[in-house]
Each structure stands twice: as C-alpha cells, then as structure tokens.
C-alpha cells in the first residue's frame, strides 16, 4: 500500500539532563517471617538443581540473586530522615521518578504508606519527609504537573 497524505508538523523532543551518583543505600528493613507455605515452596539451592518433567517440558529449579540499587535520596535538608524511613520497602527511585506533586499530594502518599502498607514511619518524621519531597518536586517544571486533588478513589498501583 502506498499513500501520500502527510502533513508536515513541527516536532521536537526534549532530553533531560542526567546525573550519576555513587552513594550507598542507607537502610533496609529486616526480612519478615515467611508464609508457612513459602517455607515449603522455597528452598536453598542444592548442588544440582532439581527437576520436574512432563510431556514435552521439564521445569528446572531456579535460584537467583536480585540486584538492589545504591541510589539514596540525594543530599538536602532532611535527606537523612527520608533515607532512614523511606527505603526499607522500596528503592528511592520510586519517589525520585514521580512527577511534580504538591505537598498535599505527597502527604496523601506518605499517609497511604503508613496507614495502608504499614510502613514503620513515625508521625514525627512526616513533616520533614514532606519538606524534602515538596522541595524535590519544586525543582521540576510546573508544566505537565498534576492539578488534581489528593483524594484518589482508584486506590492506585499498577
């Protein structure tokens, strides 16, 4: 098929800056107790991986190492507080990759982490965490930022 119907249009693509860092991760929480059935299903690696065979397929036991990243929240006021409280469950990159959010929006997220996901973040640390996150968002351009209120009936994730 050949067509000729194109209209020229202006098009530009912006590329953001980039920064590398080699700081170390500060805090990782202790592993929690395994589910009862997890003990049955998971195992330490044996010398030769065990197998289960069926018609036309053999499943081979797997043992892997999952890499972590070493990117903490960058230096700034209250960086120590956010690194101590907000990296046990997830990499700092989860927050660092967010779009510009208002203090109220960050507050809704931090409170969701505490109330719903049971993050062991003391209430006394929340204002300093919000200071840090709001300042971080403040460095992003206003263009494209959310205008929505913090209320979220979707429950998020995905």
């Amino acid at each position: 098929m050949k067509r000729s119907f194109l209209d020229p249009s202006p098009g530009t693509l912006a590329f953001g800056g980039l920064v590398f860092t080699s700081l170390v991760l500060v805090a990782i929480g202790p592993p929690s107790a395994r589910k009862p059935w997890a003990i049955e299903n998971a195992s330490s690696p044996a010398s030769a991986p065990s197998q289960v065979a069926g018609p036309d397929i053999t499943l081979v036991s797997v043992s892997v190492d999952l890499p972590d990243d070493t990117v903490p929240f960058p230096d700034g006021p209250h960086a120590a507080v956010i690194n101590a409280n907000c990296t046990s469950c997830h990499s700092a990159t989860m927050a660092l990759s967010q779009p510009r959010l208002s203090r109220d929006q960050w507050k809704a997220i931090v409170e969701k982490m505490r109330a719903t996901y049971k993050a062991p973040v003391p209430a006394s640390a929340v204002p300093e965490i919000l200071d840090y996150l709001t300042a971080m968002s403040g460095k992003l351009p206003v263009n494209g930022s959310p205008t929505a209120a913090s209320a979220d009936r979707s429950g998020g994730t995905g």
Binding site: G16, G17, F20, V71, L96
Partner: peptide, 25 residues
C-alpha cells in the same frame, strides 16, 4: 539533584533512555 533527572546507579545502570514524559523526570 539535577533538574528533571533521575539518578542512575553505576552498579545497575548501563545506559540511559529518555521516556519523554511531560514535565519529567
């Protein structure tokens, strides 16, 4: 931190891509 930039971990990050998300990062 750099404006709009996501910090890359040397141990994990081997390259960089730009996802062109409006407003960044």
């Amino acid at each position: 931190m750099g404006s709009g930039a996501l910090l890359a971990a040397p141990a994990l990050g081997q390259g960089l891509v730009d996802l062109a998300l409006p407003g960044g990062p």
